[in-house]
Computed example of a mutant assay.
Amino acid sequence: MRAAGEATRERILAAAVGEFAEYGFAGARINRIAAQARASKDRLYAYFESKDDLYAAVTARWVAETVGEAALSAADLPGYAGRLFDSFLTHPRNLQLQMWIELESPDVLHRPGHYRDAWENKLTEIRRGQAEGVIDPSWHASDLLLILTDVPRTLASAVLLAEKRAGENLAALRASRRAAAVEAARRLTTNAAALSQTRR
Results as ranks from 00 to 15, higher is better:
Asp86Ala: 13
Gly79Leu: 12
Arg111Leu: 12
Phe48Trp: 15
Asp52Phe: 09
Thr66Gly: 00
Pro112Leu: 02
Asn94Ser: 14
Tyr115Ser: 00
Ala81Thr: 12
Ala56Glu: 05
Pro106Thr: 15
Ala74Ile: 05
Leu109Gln: 08
Leu54Cys: 14
Thr90Gly: 06
Arg93Met: 07
Ala56Val: 03
Ser73Val: 05
Lys51Gln: 14
Arg128Ile: 03
Ala118Ile: 01
Tyr55Arg: 07
Phe48Tyr: 09
Gly79Asp: 13
Leu54Pro: 14
Val108Ile: 15
Tyr45Pro: 14
Asp76Trp: 13
Tyr80Arg: 12
Trp100Leu: 09
Asp76Lys: 06
Ser87Tyr: 01
Ala118Thr: 01
Trp100Gln: 15
Pro78Asn: 06
Tyr115Met: 02
Ala81Lys: 06
Tyr115Lys: 01
Ala64His: 03
Glu104Gly: 07
Pro78Ala: 08
Gly129Val: 06
Leu54Phe: 09
Leu72Met: 02
His91Ser: 05
Tyr55Asn: 04
Arg83Glu: 05
Leu72Cys: 04
Ala46Leu: 10
Asp53Leu: 07
Tyr55Pro: 01
Pro92Ile: 02
Pro92His: 12
Lys122Ile: 00
Arg116Leu: 00
Phe88Asn: 05
Asp53Asn: 15
Gly68Lys: 01
Glu104Leu: 11
Asp52Pro: 04
Leu84Cys: 15
Tyr47Ala: 11
Glu69Met: 01
Arg111Gly: 05
Leu95Phe: 06
Pro112Asp: 07
Leu97Thr: 06
Thr66Leu: 03
Glu49Gln: 13
Pro92Lys: 09
Ala118Trp: 02
Leu95Ile: 02
Leu97Trp: 05
Ala60His: 10
Phe88Ser: 04
Gly68Asp: 07
Thr59Pro: 00
Arg61Tyr: 01
Asn121Met: 12
His91Thr: 02
Glu49Leu: 10
Arg127Phe: 04
Ala46Gly: 13
Thr59Gly: 00
Asp107Tyr: 12
Ala46Asn: 06
Ile101Tyr: 11
Trp62Gly: 01
Asp107Gly: 10
Trp119Ser: 12
Lys122Asn: 01
Gly68Thr: 04
Glu49Asp: 09
Glu65Gly: 05
Leu77Asn: 07
Gly79Glu: 06
Val58Arg: 01
Phe48Ser: 07
Asp117Met: 02
Ala70Pro: 08
Lys51Tyr: 15
Glu104Tyr: 14
Tyr45Ser: 15
Arg111Ala: 11
Ile101Asp: 05
Thr90Glu: 14
Pro106Lys: 04
Trp119Cys: 07
Trp119Gly: 03
Leu103His: 08
Glu69Ala: 04
Ala71Arg: 00
His114Lys: 05
Ser105Cys: 11
Pro92Asp: 15
Pro112Asn: 07
Glu104Met: 14
Ala70His: 08
Lys51Cys: 09
Ile126Ala: 14
Ile126Pro: 09
Thr90Pro: 03
Tyr45Gly: 09
Ser73Cys: 10
Leu95Asp: 10
Thr124Gly: 07
Asp53Ser: 14
Pro78Met: 13
Leu72His: 03
Glu120His: 14
Gly68Trp: 00
